[in-house]
Design a protein around this nucleic acid. Sequence first.
DNA 1: GTCTATACAACGATAGAC
DNA 2: GTCTATCGTTGTATAGAC
Lengths: 251, 251
Amino acid sequence: MADWPNETTIEAFRKAWTLEGEPFWTSVFEMHRDKIQIKNPKVAIGNLEKIFSATFRLANAKGFQAMSLRDLSSETGISMGGLYAYIGSKNDLGSVIEGVLRKYIDQVIGELMTQDLDPVARLRAIIYGEIFMMQSLSPWYYFCYMELKGLDKEQQQQALDLELRFDSLLVDAIQSGISQKQFICDKPALLASSITAQLQQWHLKQWKFRMKDVSMEEYAAHIIDNALRCLSYRAPEKDSEVPRQSIPNYA
Amino acid sequence: MADWPNETTIEAFRKAWTLEGEPFWTSVFEMHRDKIQIKNPKVAIGNLEKIFSATFRLANAKGFQAMSLRDLSSETGISMGGLYAYIGSKNDLGSVIEGVLRKYIDQVIGELMTQDLDPVARLRAIIYGEIFMMQSLSPWYYFCYMELKGLDKEQQQQALDLELRFDSLLVDAIQSGISQKQFICDKPALLASSITAQLQQWHLKQWKFRMKDVSMEEYAAHIIDNALRCLSYRAPEKDSEVPRQSIPNYA
DNA sequence: GTCTATACAACGATAGAC
DNA sequence: GTCTATCGTTGTATAGAC
């Protein structure tokens, strides 16, 4: 995660953030190096990737509780004894997953807050950024959404706080648009939660979007378009004005 | 579930459908009378309510898989042996819950399809109706959403089909509004899924709405308002026109 | 660093007394 | 119609060989 992309496009996010491949798994390894018995990074990183990926395949298909460590052992090709060199316990594995994802989201939210953009650009950055995160870390998001209630109470609370902070980010962008007389909105908090809901669909309902052949870019544009309509936003006159006969392409 | 309410208000739905109290549990009992060993309805209905309610308390708090039948036994006050007079197996209990909810939703969708209303009224009826269902059967909805992947493949498919049918209901209303030149919408399917997403929040994120003191009526009105804005809908001139300075109250 | 073998607790489910 | 007692299975976790 280096510089913030100058232009708010999906490609820009892909370049700025490393959320896949070896560099990503290396950072995951660094994040809980202490909780692990294996010292050789080369070996550890490879097996960590195996373990996490297999956990997502199994848990996201039939549930984390329903997945046994025997399942995980045969899916990874690592023996049960071997697994315990990488995880403290089964519950610990779930906690680590939530912890890693939350840390990444925290970073992104932190970066988004330091940005000084006009309201529309801010909204676009938040939505594109979050959708890109969800796309890259889709199994992580899905796991944390569905298995949250199986984790410690404290971790559950932190996850809810994180969602509230994300909503606040949207509310702030909306409020600043209102004070600049670009937006009109009676209930910014409700609109923010509606936007969050639509974003979360991207990992919750992948079966639907795959079925209907909806791309990430198309979906992100749709959410932004909906949001701006709900905000009674009109594009500046130099751009083509929002026509009543067709959907303007804000994105 | 008798006549369709003349006016599309929450109160009308409450009168038309019995989704709580003894009549509701009686209908649940009738629905799987054959799968049960207890013949005396008085006794069976009371214990069924105990068992289902306790299941929701436990499973919706820590997950169905994590809930043991010993938990369920102590929560209901019915012995483990006793439980098996009411359920075929633990998995069966989950299946029955999904089956009951789906049957109720099927009925509602069926009724909604026979209605002949103008597009806006149709949209309102669908949204109010579904939100009222979700409110009344909130633990059922939440359970089925979160535990679906633990059920049989066939049942999972039927649940997805049901969601697609619901989306279609919305798409039909949108399309009819488009052909009557009341709505403008490039991607009815995407908008429908966004509306569904916002509706499902009502049971998925009750903690948030409770925290922010949002009532069911307020939330339903918000969804409708958002939808009509996304559809570029303008209220007929006899009503107060949609002003740019404040939110019109469509609901 | 990884494996096999095993301990032991907890689970779903049933039989049979009342 | 409900309970107690118990069976067999499966789960997590660990000890110790390699």
